[in-house]
Amino acid sequence: MAGDQTVVWIAPEKSLEILTWLKDDPAQQYDMMSDVTGVDYGSGRPIEVVYQMFSTVHKRALRLRCRLPLEALEIDSVAGLWHSANWLEREVYDLFGVTFKGHPDLRRILMPFDYAEGHPLRKDFPLRGRFSRAEQTRRALAQDVERFYGSQELAHGGPPQQVPARTEPEAEG
C-alpha cells in the first residue's frame, strides 16, 4: 500500500492467471482496465508494465506492476479479457517494444506503421530521434507511395493492377 493506492507486484509468467482471477473472482471483480502502460528506468534496468484497474462493483482501484527483463520483453496479452486493453497494449508495444503474446492485432498505433527508428519512449532513444534530420528527409523522399497505404487497404483492393497508360486526345485541326 502506498498512501491510498494499492500496488501489487506480479511475476510476468503468472500475469494472465492473476489478471483473469482478478476479473472473475466475485470478491475482486476488477471489471474496468483503466490503463496499461510501461516504464523504462534506463541503464539496463528491467522495463515495467503497469496495469491500472478499477472495480465498478466494489468501487476500488488496484495497480499491478510487473518487471520484464530487457532480454525477454514479453507478457501475455489481456485484450481478450478487457477490450480496452487492445489499444493500450498496442501503444506500449509501439513506444516500448514490449510484445504482448496473444494480442489480436499487435501493430504500431501512434507512430507510422513503417517507423524504422525503434521505440521512442525507451531511455536509450534520443529525444530528437535516431536519424538526423537529413536522413529523415532522405528516407521520406525515397518512400514508395504505395507504402503510405496500410496493409489492410492494400489487401482489400487485391493485387495491384496495371494502370492503363493515359492516351492524349488528338489535337484537332
Binding site: 490503463d35 502502460t37 516504464v39 523504462d40 480496452s84
Partner: peptide
C-alpha cells in the same frame, strides 16, 4: 489519469503518463 514515476531526489519525472480518456473512448 496522470501517472508519474520519480526516482529519489529527481527534479524530472522518470515517466509521465497520461491516461487519455478520448483514446480509450475512440477505440
Amino acid at each position: 489519469g496522470m501517472y508519474v514515476v520519480a526516482e529519489e531526489g529527481s527534479t524530472k519525472p522518470v515517466r509521465w503518463r497520461i491516461r487519455p480518456p478520448s483514446f480509450v473512448n475512440l477505440s
